[in-house]
């Protein structure tokens, strides 16, 4: 019996191995090649691109990047995006850690309703919210102000963040927290020295996911920050993409600048990115 299963396993995988690998490799190439094309194109002059778009550049250059940074405000936009993303992540992590810990380990009155509110507001599409939110923020004088944008980002990230962290904090054994509390540690002490270290992997996962979300967001960044010098990276990229239809290398450089940060995260934090995915599944 045991021998049979081993043999059958070996037979099936042995038979399917080659073709399966080839198909998967082809699919992988269909994903990687366009990105490779963008990167190569971004590193050559337009004339060189038009002469032979699929070959390697006859002349390598950083001019496209320099032009974007010097003349089209991409450097500033990059920093703006970074600022908004970092502030948003910090606020989301603080608020979601507090709420997540309380919901996981404290007898919060009406916890059921709070959780229901968070869960039901998790998937509200941006299109539904743009008109009322814009009117509301305009009245508060928060359009054209990063705080308006950050508040929108934080509040749209919180439902998932709270849900996610309360799930991962629930896995921390009650005995450990109880023991610390008997020793006199209060809410913040247990949170800081037990819950956060033990839940650090969940917190890191959340930070990576939320960073990607904010960095890549387009709709809110577009409508809430009309001021040119304050623009974030994605709207800046969108306007460059529309203005320079005939200059593929320049646009490609913009694409790579915008994609570089998420790609770096995927390379260096793929563990956390993939972990976040698992939660998406269980949801």
């Amino acid at each position: 019996m045991a021998e049979d299963t081993i043999i059958s396993k070996r037979l099936t995988s042995g038979r399917a191995n080659g073709p399966v690998f080839i198909v998967l490799a082809l699919v992988a190439i269909s994903i990687v090649y366009p990105l490779y094309f963008v990167i190569i194109t971004s590193a050559r002059p337009n004339v060189d691109y038009l002469r032979d778009p699929f070959g390697l550049p006859g002349e390598w250059t950083f001019d496209n990047y320099l032009r974007l940074l010097e003349s089209y405000g991409v450097g500033q936009a990059f920093l703006n995006s970074l600022y908004v993303a970092v502030v948003t992540i910090a606020l989301v992590l603080i608020l979601a850690t507090l709420a997540g810990y309380a919901l996981a380990k404290y007898p919060v009155p009406g916890a059921k309703y709070a959780t229901a509110a968070f869960v039901s507001l998790m998937l509200i599409p941006g299109a539904v919210l743009i008109i009322p939110t814009y009117v509301m923020l305009a009245r508060l004088g928060l359009v054209g102000n990063y705080w308006g944008l950050i508040l929108v980002y934080v509040s749209s990230a919180l439902p998932f963040a709270v849900f996610f962290l309360s799930l991962s904090f629930r896995g921390i054994p009650v005995e450990v927290i109880e023991a610390a509390r008997i020793d006199g540690a209060g809410f913040f002490r247990t949170l800081w020295s037990i819950v956060m270290p033990m839940g650090s992997s969940g917190i890191a996962t959340l930070a990576v996911l939320q960073f990607l979300g904010v960095w890549n967001e387009l709709l809110w960044a577009l409508i809430l920050i009309p001021e040119q010098s304050m623009k974030l990276l994605t709207p800046t990229l969108a306007s460059i993409g529309t203005r320079f239809l005939t200059d593929q290398p320049l646009v490609s450089a913009g694409l790579f600048i915008t994609a570089s940060v998420p790609l770096l995260l995927l390379i260096f934090a793929s563990k956390y990115v993939m972990q976040g995915l698992q939660v998406g599944v269980s949801r």
């Binding site: 699919v27 992988a28 994903i31 990687v32 990105l35 990607l212 960095w215 890549n216 967001e217 387009l218 994605t234 709207p235 990229l237 969108a238 993409g241 694409l255 915008t258 994609a259 998420p262 790609l263 995260l265 995927l266 990115v273 993939m274 995915l277």
Partner: peptide
Amino acid sequence: FFLPNVLSVAV
């Protein structure tokens, strides 16, 4: 295969 998911729709 997950790679496109970390990129912005703008990109």
